[in-house]
Design a protein around this nucleic acid. Structure first.
Lengths: 252, 252
DNA sequence: CGTACGGTTGACGAGTGTCAAGGGTAGTGG
DNA sequence: CCACTACCCTTGACACTCGTCAACCGTACG
């Protein structure tokens, strides 16, 4: 229940041309499906956009914006309700693709509504593609669509894992699972073997992600520290953690 | 918490050849992407399989089985843990596609593990395709893969809606939302305008789907009846319901 | 008519949420 | 350089929703 929209941080962010050749996610994003010739074509369509923490890329209910790749940073995909409840339904890391939540191919008619708000959690860099241009490229280069299918299938997996967490796990298990997921993510991002890493979210966002309150999250983290399962410096930096024990606490 | 596996109802079911021409989901399943010539090719690959309520198509952890379309009936996609907790992460209705939970294209190596158990909830009829044959067809007929992407994207939407339900809604809201979803589903299946319909799940399965216990589900349904928002005959048949009020109760 | 199974209801307790106060830390301005 | 502020996190006390355990009811089926 963490619904305060800082009024000073509204939708926006700076914009500049993109350079695919030097892109950090050229080989891990959808773009990995393209040859360098094909990539040149995409490059003509694309622009870069930077967002500061708390800035919002789209609001739920607004007309759909362009597609985008996350190039740097972390964003959250959220649904809020008027009484202040909020749920994070997905985290977006570098190489994740944005903009297909409501499906493809709304060609002629006006654009559909975004079902979720997308908000920068850290300093965020996006690579943006206009919808029709990108959809045209997908038709010409089926490998692009194939990779999008792959990605969507694994996001579906993640969402379903989270349904198990939200539906059946205890507070302790949720927090343990969350930390394991972050450690895993960090390992894939090439951090130092995952033994030491930063949590990408504050307590409030963690709470909104795992379906608890700030206070409960805080208490559970304290518990894990007391049990010696994790060790932290400050509120966000995990210095060490006993993965074996975490897995036991996580409810598989 | 509804984990009893009836030992008399194990994996299995009868098998017979398929006839696409007379298929109930020819125009609503993935197959709608195919011309009748193309469909002939698919027909050569496919077989029908029938399952009785409670019979299991795959166990989580088992090697992946073939792809399949649901032709008739309802199945549930579940994850259970040893201590008896269970979560339904998806319901499968006619024209839904089965078998891509762990992604595509595991060609050479041995098949991947199914992450979820698939179990028949009512009398179930499946149309089964061998994995490699179907994947070959997908490569030849991109429209097939395109439709699969569409379907996967909307399943992702549903899963995320459910994350909001499981993470942030009260018991009352969950039950109201569930009934609305069922009514909606039934309307799409062409039932009598949705004013009167059967719940496809028993109390236990509803509980496992919306992250509550049998008792809480039962109490909440009783509440809705007392408030005059729904009216039922027996435990499963909804005679009438006030959609406006239900939507108000559902937490949007 | 008896049994089995699923659903309902009640009493009680545990686990989280809520509300409120206090502590840390980083950033700002004097 | 230090005080002040703001924000986030932590901790405690208490309330409340939902889970647990148990008994009972109704319907289907042998």
């Amino acid at each position: 229940m963490n619904n305060d929209l800082n009024p000073s941080l509204v939708t926006g962010g700076s914009c500049e041309p993109a350079v695919c050749a030097t892109c950090a996610v050229r080989n891990s994003s959808l773009c990995a499906a393209l040859s360098s010739d094909e990539l040149d074509e995409l490059n003509k369509l694309s622009r870069r956009k930077s967002l500061r923490p708390g800035q919002i890329y789209v609001f739920e209910g607004d007309q759909a914006l362009d597609f985008a790749n996350v190039v740097k940073g972390v964003a959250k995909l959220t649904r809020g309700s008027e009484d202040g409840r909020m749920q994070i339904v997905g985290l977006l890391f570098p190489s994740d693709f944005i903009g297909v939540s409501m499906g493809l191919g709304h060609g002629g008619d006006r654009k559909p509504e975004e079902p979720y708000t997308i908000e920068a959690v850290s300093d965020l860099e996006l690579c943006i593609f206009p919808r029709d241009g990108f959809e045209r490229l997908m038709r010409r280069f089926p490998a692009l669509e194939h990779k999008l299918l792959d990605r969507t299938l694994s996001e579906l997996q993640v969402a379903r894992e989270w349904m198990v967490l939200l539906g059946r796990k205890t507070a302790q298990e949720r927090v343990a699972t969350f930390i394991l997921h972050v450690a895993d993510k960090m390992r894939h991002q090439g951090c130092h073997s995952g033994i030491s890493f930063d949590l990408p979210l504050g307590r409030g966002d963690i709470a909104d992600h795992i379906g608890l309150t700030i206070e409960t999250v805080s208490r559970q983290i304290t518990q894990l520290k007391r049990k010696g399962i994790i060790d932290m410096q400050g509120a966000r930096h995990v210095v060490s953690c006993d993965f074996e024990a975490l897995r036991e606490q996580s409810g598989y």
